[in-house]
């Protein structure tokens, strides 16, 4: 039986008087590539914040790698690519190498400096995302798709076992979105990195992920991708609270 990376039991979370998440029970097994879908305001980002320990649930229990989140301190095992990552200041004078190094800052710790081993890890992470030719380029000079790869490298440099990506393909053209998903698939199948991907691009995501969870305040569906694509439009519309058509890109 697979050990779970994330286990959420009876989670409730409200912002002041507004319920954001209600009775969430979700298990993410090791090795999975789970797509998280749902309407805006459905609680996806709140769920991620709970997993990252940035906010605490008002009710329920969260376990990470089999350990209660209140006792968990091995945060290097979890990498995160925010939906805001590509809204950074493009004029910022930082090379790819410098940006990726920030993924190691917390791991190295205060009062310590990067050593040769860390520098090697940075080169390897950039290589893994296929961007080694751009190590000394300013990040602002790269295209949106290339920048997103660098942010993945930044998340990968600390050797995470679990990578969370919050709408990482916003603002990236279709061709690069495909390449991006291929990279995620490679990380999942070859590097054994478990993935949780929040995306509105349901059609593309279901081609690469092996599981889907549909969240709208509570989990309305959690199963494999083929079961999800077999859902009727009526069922999907109920989950989303509005009409929904899944569009699959043919390339």
């Amino acid at each position: 039986m697979n050990k779970s990376i994330v286990q959420m039991k009876n989670i409730k979370y409200a912002y002041e008087d507004k319920m954001a998440l209600n009775n969430i029970n979700l298990t993410i097994p090791t090795g999975s590539f789970l797509g998280l879908v749902g309407p805006n305001g459905g609680g996806k980002t709140t769920l991620i914040k709970l997993i990252l320990g940035l906010i605490k649930p008002q009710q329920g229990q969260i376990s990470l790698f089999g350990q209660d989140i209140t006792e968990f301190n091995d945060w290097n095992k979890i990498g995160f690519v925010s939906q805001k990552a590509n809204s950074f200041n493009r004029g910022f004078p930082a090379t790819v190498k410098e940006v990726v190094s920030t993924g190691l800052t917390a791991q190295v710790g205060y009062f310590k400096f990067f050593n040769q081993g860390h520098r090697q890890k940075i080169i390897e992470a950039v290589d893994l995302v296929g961007m080694s030719d751009y190590l000394n380029q300013n990040i602002g000079d790269l295209s949106g798709g290339q920048q997103q790869r660098i942010f993945i490298a930044r998340a990968l440099v600390s050797d995470p076992k679990f990578l969370i990506l919050d709408e990482p393909t916003v603002g990236i053209d279709t061709e690069n979105v495909q390449k991006f998903y291929q990279l995620l698939h490679k990380l999942n199948s070859e590097q054994n990195i478990s993935l949780l991907l929040v995306s509105h691009d349901v059609g593309t995501m279901t081609k690469y992920a092996n599981g889907v969870a549909c969240l709208n305040k509570s989990i309305h569906f959690h199963g494999n991708t083929s079961d999800f694509t077999n859902l009727t439009e009526h069922q999907l519309s109920q989950f989303y609270g509005h009409d929904l058509n899944i569009v699959t890109h043919q390339h």
Partner: peptide, 13 residues
């Protein structure tokens, strides 16, 4: 390194 990280991406830091 902390100041650089904070300057580049405060949320990530």
């Amino acid at each position: 390194k902390e100041l650089f990280m904070l300057s580049f991406d405060e949320e990530h830091a």
